[in-house]
């Protein structure tokens, strides 16, 4: 699963440039969390469009770790891009407090969706396209908030596993501190992705690559040395979250149903 880094960079920068410019837009807007995924998306956008055409938004909540925003600033400075810090506390907090005993999961989803609202608003402000920052590992595991951080218009890194994100990030010169740090969705204090998921990205990426890209079946994977329960757990997880990867299901009535037999590319007309 080792990438040809030079070629990958070329494909992804061409993608961002063409998909942005062909619809008449000049800039991209993305949330910058201080983590590696958004840093990589931003770096690709800079390579594609130049630093002045990339607008990053830092979206802290009162419980977010200070380190995350410091890292976002570090990345923005290293890349030379525009960074706005838009604290979501003033509108997220009243919402959360309006519902007594909101669970951690619900709060996490609310925060992700408040960030989505802000990013899409800023995209209108800057006349930019919203750049996605979800990687292939997250998308397959459904580890993201539907219509929250999963929402975007174009996503340059959605076909890269987390370990490939690290590899490409290093190649593109993203600050080492950000590449090396423990991944976290920062939805509550001391949260780490690997702690919450219960396995490491390295392990799951190896499995996902064999399962998805190489289409290995369960028996083969077990024979290759993967733990049977782990294989079962991951394949169930991929199935369970398929809905997050699809447009809403429309009930078929007519001869031409949107998404089913009314089919055109999104770039139809461009």
């Amino acid at each position: 699963m080792k990438l040809d880094l030079k070629l990958t960079k070329q494909i992804l920068t061409t993608f961002v440039k063409e998909e942005t410019e062909k619809i008449g837009l000049k800039t991209v807007v993305l949330g910058l969390s201080g983590g590696i995924d958004s840093a990589l998306s931003a770096a690709i956008a800079v390579e594609a469009l130049g630093k002045d055409r990339v607008f990053a938004v830092g979206l802290p909540y009162k419980l977010s770790s200070k380190e995350s925003m410091a890292d976002a600033e570090l990345v923005a400075k290293a890349l030379g891009i525009n960074l706005e810090i838009a604290d979501i506390t003033p509108f997220a907090e009243p919402f959360i407090e309006s519902e007594p005993d909101m669970s951690k999961l619900r709060i996490g989803n609310v925060l992700a969706r408040m960030r989505m609202v802000t990013i899409f608003d800023r995209s209108a402000k800057h006349g930019g396209i919203v750049l996605g920052t979800s990687n292939k590992t997250e998308l397959l595991l459904g580890y993201g908030t539907w219509y929250g951080d999963l929402a975007s218009a174009i996503n340059p890194i959605g076909d890269l596993y987390k370990t490939q994100v690290w590899e490409l990030s290093e190649y593109l010169g993203i600050p080492e501190k950000v590449v090396k740090k423990q991944p976290t969705a920062d939805l509550w204090p001391d949260q780490t992705d690997e702690g919450e998921l219960g396995f490491t990205y390295k392990d799951v990426d190896r499995l996902l690559y064999e399962m998805v890209d190489n289409r290995r079946r369960k028996a083969e994977l077990v024979q290759m040395g993967f733990d049977e329960d782990f294989v079962q757990k991951i394949s169930e997880r991929i199935m369970r979250y398929q809905f997050k990867r699809k447009i809403p299901v429309i009930a078929k009535v007519s001869q031409r149903t949107i998404g089913r037999d009314f089919r055109y590319s999104r770039d139809w007309g461009y």
Binding site: K252, V253, S254, Q255, T257, D261
Partner: peptide, 11 residues
């Protein structure tokens, strides 16, 4: 004739 015929063209 085993079939999987979907409902479509309801006009």
């Amino acid at each position: 004739i085993p079939s999987n015929s979907p409902a479509r063209g309801v006009v």
